[in-house]
Simulated assay, not measured.
Amino acid sequence: MLATIHKNQTGYIAQIECPLAHSICEVWAVLTENGKLQKWMSNLEMIEPKKNGKMRFNMNDGTDAFIDIAITDYIEQEVLEFEWGKDSVRFELSPTSDGSILVLHEKIGQLTDHTPKDLAGWHICLELLSDLLNDTVPGEFPMEAWQKRLAEYTLLIHEAEK
């Protein structure tokens, strides 16, 4: 389930496909309901779930600091897109014969040293989301697994730059 990365006119698109044996309603709930969302991505908080609405990225560092994030596209049970720094993240949800498929697209203007860290983080978060849907309550963020994915995404980014 490693991301694929493609160059386009404005930069790059990283895409991770996550097939899930769960209904669109169940998956949408873990993407948009704070009690579920924060179990797989503890920094995100849904404030106004709608197009031109707002999310927050909470620093979770004891300072109560946060960054407001604009929701740029929102179609109930289909699309959630939001700003991600200078880039954007888009989740698309579609039904399949045995559940649904969640596709994450990260639009990346410029590849940086932070890009593989970001993609490794999203990869791990999608695994935690899947665990949550499968009734496994995610614990602390698995840094060892993230380090492994970071090495894989560093190589992937290097290949994309060629």
Rank of each mutant, 00 (worst) to 15 (best):
L128R: 12
K162N: 15
L37Y: 04
L128E: 03
E159D: 15
S88A: 10
W40S: 03
H22E: 04
V137A: 12
E26Q: 15
F82C: 08
L129S: 02
T63H: 02
M143V: 14
G99E: 02
I5P: 00
N34T: 08
K117R: 14
W146E: 06
E144R: 14
L93D: 01
S100Y: 02
T4P: 02
N43P: 02
E45C: 09
F91M: 08
L104T: 06
E144D: 14
A151H: 10
T96D: 03
L119K: 03
I108W: 01
R56V: 09
K39Q: 15
I5E: 00
H158S: 11
A14W: 04
Y74S: 03
Q110E: 14
I157M: 05
E106D: 08
R56M: 04
T154H: 07
W84D: 05
C125Q: 07
I5F: 01
Y74W: 06
G121R: 03
D118P: 06
K86T: 12
D113V: 14
K148N: 13
D73N: 09
T115F: 01
E81G: 05
A70G: 03
W84M: 07
A3H: 08
I16N: 03
P49Y: 07
F141K: 06
M143T: 12
A70W: 03
W40R: 05
N43C: 11
K107H: 12
Q9D: 14
D131H: 11
Y12A: 13
D64K: 14
T136H: 06
N43V: 09
I157F: 02
T63M: 05
S88Y: 05
M143C: 11
D131Y: 04
I13F: 03
M55F: 00
G35Q: 10
L150C: 10
T115K: 01
E161V: 12
E106K: 05
K51T: 11
G109N: 10
I16A: 06
